[in-house]
Design a protein around this nucleic acid. Sequence first.
DNA 1: AAGCCGGGGCT
DNA 2: AGCCCAGGCTT
Length: 355
Amino acid sequence: MFARLNELMIFSKTLTHWYSNNKRNLPWRETNNPYYIWLSEIILQQTQVKQGLPYYDAFVTKYPTVFDLAKANESDVLKLWQGLGYYSRARNLHATAKHVAKALKGKFPNNHKDLLKLKGVGDYTASAVASICFNEVAAVVDGNVYRVLSRYFGIDTPINSSKGAKEFKLLAQELIDKQYPAEFNQAIMEFGATQCKPKNPYCHICPFNQGCIALNTNRISELPVKIKSAKAKKKHFNFLVFISEDEKTILQKREGKGIWQSLYQFPLIETDKNMDAESFKKHIENEDLLKDVSFDLSLYNKDVIVHKLSHQHLYTKFWILNVNRLTVEGISTRDIRNYAVPILIGNFIESFNFQ
DNA sequence: AAGCCGGGGCT
DNA sequence: AGCCCAGGCTT
């Protein structure tokens, strides 16, 4: 019993000592302001620091306070979020900013239980904000924590099972430094991110290389254990890039439930197989957008573009349609960069070099 | 409990 | 081309 307590104590002290010597200088570590901490935590969900950092800087610059973010239009928030993915984060971010600004008069909840009620805030984010901003003893369990704990303690319960979630949360809550919860939480995540990495961790210089069960039983590459997810489905996307004689094109807002909700795209024709020019021309002849329109069809990308999402692979072709007129309003091609689009579309827009 | 929601990186 | 990453929400 005392040996166990002692071991946990040594783990925590070693970890926070490592952190004090190895932590990166990051802008959200200069503040305890809940708005900035919350913003950084939403951005960093499923996202590495390297990718999220420029977005954090952009949001802080454009929206210095929660009131500024609350006043923005959702389309502007999505535009600033463009390329970061998981766009429900941006929609929830904006909705929560409005809620905090209005209903809570700009004051973020100051505890885990109430933070959990905010849209887009789950157990991880509530724990992070509660500990970092308010010193609440709430252990964070993110992917880094799963990795560090499963390796050091040799736990092979799948981390993406409900049993694993409970088990690791309980262990983290047991380990957390009750005096310095903010320091401990950030230390274990930083340690997982930069030292106990998924591939090729620096075990030879690791302060835990005596006690780490995974290392001492040669199971570093096997831990943490994760239940495999289903393979991605293949889809065939054909985008219609209209270009009219008066330099206009068509963008449509994605509505409903699926991917890229509320982002813009060129009119999309999904087919059940890869299309060549001849059969595709036949395929689209009866489209409403082409009714009584004389058009010239050409394929922009010779090789199909494979855009990989976590659960579907999009085999994509951009079809250029030079038309005499548009049958719907359309937008000037000069304004095309004002719309929030998926990175797949954004890359095409840059490459095509719209005037 | 299982599936959905991006995009980047590595091999 | 295939695999890894992994928080929150919906079903």
